[in-house]
């Protein structure tokens, strides 16, 4: 099973690289929505990385962490889209 665990970790490594590459979109924007999109990419990829780490490092509690991240990922997007700009209150 050693080979499979190494493979899990290698895929996690690749996904981490992906995630960091996605940072370019936070940097360039141009709009706030694009930056939030990149944060969404962070969320989904982090979940995959956590699931892979749970298997590779034999820490089953990390699956609960992944579940929490997906469950609460939408809270951030709701906070972004449902918090009014201050000009809208006038």
């Amino acid at each position: 099973m050693y080979a499979v665990e190494t493979l899990d970790l290698a895929i996690a490594l690749f996904l981490l690289l992906n995630l960091l590459a996605g940072l370019g979109r936070v940097h360039h924007g141009p709009g706030a929505a694009d930056r939030m999109l990149a944060a969404m990419l962070f969320g989904t990829t982090t979940v995959a990385v956590l699931l892979l780490l749970a298997e590779a490092t034999a820490l089953p509690a990390l699956r609960d962490v992944a579940l929490l991240v997906v469950l609460l990922a939408a809270v951030l997007v709701v906070a972004f889209t449902r918090t009014p700009r201050r000009e809208e209150e006038r």
Binding site: L23, V26, R35, F42, V49, L50, L53, T57, V65, L76
Partner: peptide, 15 residues
């Protein structure tokens, strides 16, 4: 936004 992303990365660090 980057700080929020950093929070997610910290979860992986703790893992």
């Amino acid at each position: 936004v980057l700080f929020i992303a950093l929070g997610l990365l910290m979860a992986v660090v703790w893992a």
